[in-house]
Amino acid sequence: MGYELSKEQMNEILSQLKEDYLIYAPKCFQDGGRFSDTDCIRYGEINKIEEIVFDKKAEYSFKEVLLPISQTLFYFTEDSVKEADAPKQGAIVFLRSCDLHSVKRLDEIYLRNGFSDYYYQRLRERVVFVLMGCQTAFDSCFCVDMGTNQSNEYDMSIDRSENGYQLDCKSNQLEKLLSQYATNNLSVTPAYVTETKTRVNIPSNLSYQIGNSNMWREYDTRCINCGRCNFVCPTCTCFTMQDIFYTDNEKAGERRRVWASCMVDGYTDVAGGASYRQKNGDRMRFKVLHKVLDYKERNGYHMCVGCGRCDDICPEYISFSHCINKLENGMKEVMEHE
């Protein structure tokens, strides 16, 4: 059911929702950018609808809500262990179509990849998704080519309109709340883009042979293995485990899991001191092929959702989409040498 609500009405609804939910949305962290006197748009808790940034892309995705960057799993001391509490409240997440498509990828890894991850599931069950419509694509977006430009998997959608906000609600619970304020009953379809400036072409003959191409060598020197591309990616799901013994009392501690990156040193360290993919180009190859080849072989659809954040964040101006577009020539190169 579609609604149009004023800013004031939206804020009343948010304040009611805040009783049961933490509300996360892309917002502006003023002077919170990497460089001085710059802002950072990323996810954070909001209180008012006007805090949501609609006209810029969040540098980091929403995934930290479902997959906390650093998550304590349990505490231990002597012979006892205590599981870390789940958050008291559920979460409402405002996100765009590409990100909503990435939820399916996260679910695939954490719920349907052999077993269901307890810590993920207990957060996931209590998340409500609000789709933010996209009037136009940002420069680095390539969602149309990845088939992620439109989504119906939302609980509610939101688009800005002349008089406030237009919403399409699919959740009964939210519907009850909205109907208290509804000024109109409209037919609302969330905005979505049908073309993007950045285009990608994933060659149909793409195979692991591409690993023999010289195309990866360029990244040996260009890439600085900082991992920003992984941390901003809404579909990267890797973590590492840390057992911490508190410095004041080493008899107590905690186990936490922390985001990991296949681009950063240490990712492939194994017992005995060995380590793999030392060259940054090899790490790039591993990441790119995971996003557009091997994940699809296992799950039937590409992992990459085309949000373009990795392009935007790279301090060395390495473009993931540009790399994808090199795959076709790379395949020609390796097939010639067959």
């Binding site: 990497r34 460089f35 950072c40 980091y60 941390f231």
Partner: peptide
């Protein structure tokens, strides 16, 4: 100097509001 802020890939380090 802010090298930690510049090198952090995940905004764990940020700048102080005051200069």
């Amino acid at each position: 100097c802010g090298e930690c802020v510049l090198s952090c890939p995940n905004m764990a380090w940020t700048r102080s509001k005051k200069k």
